[in-house]
């Protein structure tokens, strides 16, 4: 966002300097979609488009907190998102037990639990100086363990009908509610990052913590808050995901861990922090989902899919590396 804006003010209004990573990702998503039509006729149609955006929405929502954490820098990363997604879904499944009336209070509780887990992550990272990778990985193990311990593998409960209706089924015309939810989250995240003191401080903390501190930013507070928010958003992601899957299983969120980081990076957010946007992550989620759908449509074996996905990510990141040489 800011880069696009900053570019407007620079003297060299050439095309390459405006071609920021989020924009590259978005163009790539469109190209991939059209490519899908060439490879397998019938791929390009409205229903398919809606389906892909719907699937990308779940990844996008789960990757929202990851975006914030990675922007915060200091080797920031949240490896506990997957477990928290699973926990969020299981809690919703169990506590609502299919009752529509309980959706809102349970959602509140689920997000609070997620925020609590993130808070512990943040406190450990800031005050015990545990590296984020280690802290959140350990937390992932703890959360997974607690889930096993408490449920003993028996997952009882039910998904409320209303959640299914609002999230997974067509809401307005053929478009399911989750897409509106995702767009709403996109707007909220833009406001958070670009139009609140917290957002500006988060970028400052990600770029240079000394400058931030000497400019009056309470760096530890911003970092702890960011991890808490990541936990909260991951739990929310689990809640939303349940509306789609209908049932829960012990590794529900597991397959979102790697993509949640990949979507952020493909969207142009620097892993070193201080630079990025949520609309980039949204584009990144679309790209990943499209690659996934395309490869699946080809009927390739799982292993081949995973190889191609990895290569595509490497190519993209190296292109971004070149971009930065143009002084982004």
């Amino acid at each position: 966002m800011t880069t696009a804006k900053a570019k407007r003010g620079s003297f060299v209004p050439n095309f390459t300097s405006r071609l920021t990573p989020p924009l590259i990702a978005l163009i790539l998503a469109i190209v991939l979609f059209l490519l899908g039509g060439v490879i397998s006729p019938g791929f390009v149609n409205a229903n398919q488009a809606i389906n892909i955006v719907r699937l990308a929405a779940f990844l996008g929502i789960i990757a929202a907190g990851q975006t914030l954490v990675i922007i915060s820098g200091g080797e920031g990363i949240d490896l506990s998102v997957a477990s928290v997604v699973t926990l969020g879904a299981i809690l919703t499944f169990r506590l609502t037990d299919g009752q529509d009336a309980l959706i809102l209070p349970v959602l509140g509780l689920v997000m609070l639990v997620g925020a609590g887990i993130g808070l512990v992550n943040g406190l450990g990272i800031v005050f015990l100086r545990i590296p984020p990778l280690v802290m959140t990985l350990a937390m992932a193990g703890v959360v997974q363990g607690v889930i096993l311990q408490v449920t003993r593998g028996e997952l009882e409960g039910e998904t409320p009908d209303l959640m299914r209706t609002l999230i997974a089924q067509p809401l307005i015309g053929p478009i399911p509610g989750v897409i509106f939810l995702w767009i709403g989250l996109g707007i909220a995240m833009w406001l958070l990052l670009e139009r609140t003191p917290y957002g500006k401080m988060l970028f400052a903390v990600g770029i240079n913590r000394t400058t931030a501190m000497l400019s009056g930013v309470r760096v530890p507070l911003v970092v702890v808050l960011t991890y808490a928010m990541s936990g909260m958003l991951a739990a929310f992601g689990g809640f939303v995901l349940l509306g789609f899957t209908d049932i829960v299983f012990l590794n529900l969120g597991g397959r979102y861990l790697f993509p949640s980081i990949a979507a952020v990076v493909v969207g142009g957010t620097l892993l070193s922090g201080g630079k990025g946007s949520y609309w980039g992550t949204m584009s990144g989620a679309l790209v990943l989902q499209l690659i996934n759908s395309l490869l699946q449509a080809q009927g390739l074996p799982e292993a081949t899919q995973s190889i191609i996905l990895g290569v595509v990510l490497l190519v993209l990141i190296s292109i971004y590396g070149r971009q930065r040489a143009f002084r982004l």
């Binding site: 800011t2 804006k5 900053a6 003010g9 003191p197 500006k200 401080m201 970028f203 400052a204 770029i207 240079n208 000394t210 400058t211 931030a212 000497l214 400019s215 009056g216 930013v217 201080g274 630079k275 982004l328």
Partner: peptide
């Protein structure tokens, strides 16, 4: 560079930083 500025942010963002609240 290391204590006073956020080099990759805009001049406006840098000027605003201490006064955000």
């Amino acid at each position: 560079g290391n204590e006073g500025l956020l080099l990759i942010r805009s001049i406006l963002d840098n000027l605003m930083l201490p006064s955000l609240r």
